[in-house]
Amino acid sequence: MTDGIRVAALDDVAEGEGLAISKDVTGTEDNIAILRDEDGGVWALNDTCTHETASLADGWVENGHVECPLHASRFCLKNGAVEGLPATKDTVAHRVEVRDGDVYLYPNEQP
């Protein structure tokens, strides 16, 4: 998948927020959360929190991490590593690229 999958326009993802992309579109085991930090960077993680079944796309994005809206587990935007309990298992990070105002996802490729 050399060109990636166009999953959204950059303007569809507000800074500090996320957007869930269906696994039917991505071909992955989980939906993918496209997350945009306060600096405008765009990141992609598996959408389901590894602690409970909450959507990370509905979480809070700031200071290089996303916080789960259910129990406040935190995950690193760059690599999916757990940064705050109660989660103890990392999530999966995916490569994402912004080109010409569009967000392209490369499922299962490391960022």
Rank of each mutant, 00 (worst) to 15 (best):
M1G: 15
D3V: 11
I5P: 10
I5N: 11
R6Y: 01
R6H: 04
V7T: 04
A8N: 05
A8V: 04
A9V: 02
L10E: 11
D11G: 10
D11M: 09
A14H: 02
A14C: 03
G18S: 03
L19G: 13
L19Y: 07
L19W: 07
I21P: 13
K23E: 14
V25R: 14
T26Y: 09
T26H: 01
T26E: 06
G27H: 13
T28W: 03
E29G: 09
E29P: 10
D30A: 11
N31T: 08
I32M: 09
I32N: 13
A33R: 00
I34Q: 11
L35A: 06
L35W: 00
R36N: 00
R36Q: 02
D37K: 01
D37M: 02
D37G: 08
E38S: 12
E38F: 02
D39L: 04
D39M: 05
G40K: 06
G40I: 00
G40T: 01
G40W: 00
G41P: 04
V42T: 05
W43S: 13
A44T: 11
A44Y: 04
A44G: 13
L45Y: 09
L45R: 10
N46G: 14
D47Q: 07
T48K: 14
C49I: 06
T50S: 15
T50F: 06
T50N: 10
H51N: 02
H51D: 05
E52A: 13
T53L: 15
A54Y: 07
S55W: 12
S55M: 13
A57I: 09
D58F: 11
D58N: 12
D58Q: 11
D58R: 11
W60Q: 14
W60H: 12
V61G: 02
V61T: 08
N63T: 00
H65T: 15
H65R: 14
V66T: 04
E67Q: 06
C68D: 03
P69F: 05
P69E: 12
L70G: 02
H71V: 08
H71P: 10
H71L: 11
A72E: 11
S73N: 06
S73W: 08
R74H: 06
C76T: 08
L77Q: 02
L77K: 01
L77I: 08
K78V: 05
N79D: 15
N79I: 06
N79G: 03
A81V: 01
A81C: 03
A81T: 03
A81F: 00
V82D: 07
E83P: 00
E83A: 00
E83D: 03
G84S: 13
L85F: 15
D90R: 09
V92L: 08
V92C: 11
A93C: 13
A93P: 15
A93Q: 14
H94R: 12
H94M: 05
H94W: 01
R95N: 02
R95M: 09
R95H: 11
V96M: 08
V98I: 01
R99E: 01
D100G: 03
G101K: 01
D102E: 15
D102S: 03
V103T: 07
Y104A: 00
Y106D: 09
P107T: 08
N108G: 03
E109L: 09
Q110H: 09
Q110I: 10
P111Q: 04
P111T: 10
P111C: 06
